[in-house]
Amino acid sequence: MTWAACLCWFGCSSKPAETTDVMAEGSPKFQQYYVHGKELYTTYCSNCHQQSGTGLGRLYPPLNVSDYVDANQSAVLCLMRNGKEGELTVNGKSFNKKMPAIPALTDIEIAEIATYIYNSWGRTKGIVEVQQVSRVLASCDTLR
């Protein structure tokens, strides 16, 4: 392959650079979690938090740039399963829209969504293992 063809091949990828970089660095397990997590995020989360993770005005908080997401991974895992009522402060702004519970999500699905969220929008936290998620979910009542 010539230098110019190689440059074009790498520079003309149809995937966004961020997704390509994250995917290339991960193991097959990471890639599976990330891809399935993105699908689950689209199904269960993007209606409120948007595909881009920007949230929806003052109704639903952003996930893409979020001091809450960055500092509260265990609480985020619990929110996915149990939902939340009441005020939540993200990036200094108050949000008070109910987040519905999704009790049908399995521990592995929550791990996959978390892997997607924590490895998108500039984050590179690595895989969120299902064993970690199961431990956190077992203690959600103590995190409220």
Rank of each mutant, 00 (worst) to 15 (best):
L56F: 08
Q32I: 09
V90Y: 00
S74Q: 08
G53E: 01
E85P: 08
P61F: 00
A101R: 00
G55F: 06
V35D: 06
P62F: 01
L63H: 00
C78N: 01
Q51D: 15
Q51E: 14
I110C: 07
E85Q: 15
G53H: 00
G37V: 04
N91F: 01
Q50C: 06
Y34T: 04
M99P: 05
M80Q: 09
S52K: 08
Q32S: 10
T89Q: 10
A104Y: 03
L59R: 10
S74K: 06
D70G: 09
K84P: 05
N72M: 02
R58V: 12
P61N: 00
N47S: 13
G37T: 05
V69I: 05
T89V: 14
V76Q: 02
A101K: 03
R81N: 10
V69G: 00
E109T: 03
P61D: 01
L56S: 08
Y41N: 08
L56Q: 10
N64C: 07
K93W: 14
Q32W: 14
A101Q: 04
K97L: 13
M99K: 11
R81A: 12
C78H: 02
K98S: 14
Y60K: 07
D67T: 12
C45N: 00
L79D: 05
Q50T: 13
V90D: 01
L40E: 10
L77T: 02
L59T: 11
G53P: 04
G37M: 07
E39M: 15
T89P: 06
R81S: 08
E87G: 07
T42W: 11
G92A: 08
T54N: 11
G37Y: 03
K93H: 14
D67R: 01
S94K: 12
R81I: 15
Y41R: 14
Y33H: 10
C78L: 04
T42A: 15
G53C: 03
G53A: 03
Q73W: 14
Y60D: 14
L63P: 00
K84N: 08
I108F: 09
P103D: 13
A104T: 10
H49P: 05
G55I: 10
K98W: 12
S52F: 05
I108G: 09
T42E: 12
H36Y: 11
A75M: 13
A75S: 15
I108H: 10
T106V: 02
T43E: 12
I110K: 01
R81C: 10
N91G: 06
Q73P: 15
N47Q: 15
T89K: 11
R81Y: 09
K84C: 02
Q31C: 11
N91M: 02
G86E: 08
A75W: 08
E109R: 02
L59Y: 04
K93L: 12
A101H: 03
M80S: 08
L40T: 11
Q51M: 15
Q51P: 12
G37R: 05
Y68A: 02
S46D: 09
D107M: 05
A111Q: 00
C78M: 09
A104V: 13
Y33Q: 14
Y44K: 11
S66E: 01
